[in-house]
Nucleic acid binder design. Structure first.
Lengths: 201, 201
DNA sequence: GTCTATAGATGGATAGAC
DNA sequence: GTCTATCCATCTATAGAC
């Protein structure tokens, strides 16, 4: 059976998308190759013509997922810092993000498992995270503030997801939203312009 | 072969300790019953005279590990809020905590996997987390601030652990330490007394 | 209570037909 | 490139000897 040119690339991209969703929802170790391929409408035998191993898929996911996230954070470059902040806080710290990990950020879902994997995957993780950090540093004006911002967001989604009741999930993300906003305003960072030079704290 | 009275309880406690360390280090799904029992000097057959299932062990770990954490946070009740805060930030956001998950807090290690488990485990998680939250609320004076505090700490350790280089790990935890401290001081909370009534933000 | 042995299912990965 | 079939290791859990 023949396959048209570009077929593999198309399927490869589709696989990254469906596998990313499934991995973020169910975890890396808990998701088998069978389930990954079934979610893409294929059988497990075909997996290895796309990836050398399951671990190799995780590596590819770190790049594709974090690149997609960077693109989200880089939107609206001309909005005021305050408008941008409000928009992004509402987006990331939303109840949808808590309850739908399959369409959300890779960081809260898979960071704990990535911390236990090969060095090569963690190096890729660092590389991509630094790109996201650079975007946030531009926006917030401080490198250290950008790190704290990332940790607060990721920690909030992580904790909220483990809670069984939506009411408390909402309390957690709401608290982090208020905290971040007021802390940033207190540091006079709400009015930092996106094009200004990053400063040390 | 006979076993002395209290032997099972003693072994049970030992099992919780060794299993907790191994689970926090390697993850729930990735750690088999064989490995868990081997770390306690036994074989897998004996596991089921202590726990009904692997999932049942996780439930027991949520209680034992989070109770132990609460005891840490509740220490030094008569220290000033500022001294207490400095001490706890140094303790939790330390490079040792990043690099030795087996002796650290359960939250950054296992929250993502707990979020994917049975309702009964998540309800226990909520129950225990609320106890820790109450302790922090007493210390920080605000319920919402206590939630944000927890999320920042847990997110920082989670992210730092996935990074391959100690230098960047240190940057991340240092940034969160500075951020939390300055945000709390800015809210005049450094001088809140531990016995005062919690306030809404 | 713990051991060995094993059942039964599922895991990652490979081989060969199409 | 994807399929079915399969190898082999590992997993959770159980059964029976001591």
């Amino acid at each position: 059976m023949r396959y048209p040119p570009g077929y593999k690339e198309k399927k490869h991209t589709e696989l990254l998308k469906t596998s990313g969703s499934l991995m973020k929802k169910n975890g890396f170790a808990a998701t088998g190759v069978d389930a990954l391929m079934q979610s893409a409408g294929m059988t497990s035998g075909a997996f290895y013509s796309h990836f050398a191993s399951k671990s190799d898929l995780l590596k590819a996911l770190v790049t594709s997922e974090l690149t997609a996230s960077q693109n989200l954070w880089a939107r609206n470059p001309h909005a005021s810092a305050e408008d941008w902040l409000d928009f992004e806080l509402e987006r990331y710290l939303s109840i949808q993000h808590v309850q739908q990990p399959e369409t959300g950020c890779l960081l809260p879902s898979l960071s704990a498992e990535i911390a236990r994997t090969d060095l090569s995957i963690r190096e890729l993780y660092e590389q991509e995270l630094l790109k996201g950090h650079a975007i946030l540093t531009q926006r917030l004006g401080h490198e250290e503030l950008a790190w704290a911002f990332i940790c607060q967001l990721v920690g909030s989604i992580l904790i909220a997801r483990a809670l069984p009741h939506e009411e408390l999930q909402r309390s957690v993300i709401h608290a982090s939203k208020l905290f971040l906003r007021s802390a940033l305003v207190a540091k006079n960072l709400s009015f930092a312009m996106p094009t200004q030079e990053p400063q040390k704290l």
